[in-house]
Simulated scan of single mutants.
Amino acid sequence: MWKIPGLAARPRFTSRATVLVLVLCSLVAILAYPTRQFISQRSDISAQRAKAEHARQQVEQLRRERARWQDPEFVKAQGRERLHYAMPGETPFISVDPNPPSTKSSSADAGSAPQAKAAQPWYASVWDSVDQADSTSAQR
């Protein structure tokens, strides 16, 4: 470059550029928090809208179910199915499989122990648990 005698070299950043950079940085710092809050609130709003839509769907489903329960034939069918009701003159029955499929013999043994304990009075089961706790502490 040509140097002109008597003129000083200009600094790379002038005071105006420094002030402009400082103003821009402070604007970014000032607007960062509100922008983050805005984005957070937008996501909260969308989550609340999704919840409201889900609630509307549940309400619609419950309205349809209530309408079904208004039908006397549906009520009769539910009484027959759930409560095993029968109409006058009918003979209700329930079929039970005499040989239920067993998965393992150990699970059958484990299932019979709670039934035996359930047949005992409460004080007998308490005494059995005390005896069991005493026998395990003596084995240690």
Rank of each mutant, 00 (worst) to 15 (best):
M1G: 04
P5Y: 02
G6E: 03
R10Q: 00
R10P: 00
P11L: 00
P11Q: 02
R12H: 00
F13E: 02
F13T: 00
T14C: 01
T14D: 03
R16Y: 06
A17I: 01
T18S: 05
T18G: 06
V23M: 10
C25P: 05
S26E: 11
V28H: 09
I30V: 14
L31Q: 08
A32G: 13
Y33I: 05
Y33M: 09
P34T: 03
Q37D: 07
I39M: 06
Q41K: 15
R42E: 14
R42W: 13
S43C: 05
S46F: 13
A47R: 05
R49Y: 12
A52D: 10
A52V: 08
H54R: 12
H54F: 15
A55T: 09
R56P: 04
E60H: 14
Q61F: 13
L62K: 11
L62S: 15
E65A: 09
W69S: 02
Q70F: 15
P72S: 03
Q78W: 15
G79P: 03
H84C: 03
Y85N: 09
Y85S: 08
Y85G: 06
T91I: 08
N99D: 13
S102I: 06
S102N: 02
T103I: 11
S105Q: 12
S106C: 05
A110S: 00
A113L: 11
P114I: 03
P114S: 03
A116K: 14
K117F: 07
W122H: 10
W122G: 15
Y123V: 13
V126P: 04
W127G: 07
D128Q: 11
D128W: 08
S129T: 10
S129Q: 09
Q132W: 10
D134E: 12
T136H: 10
T136F: 10
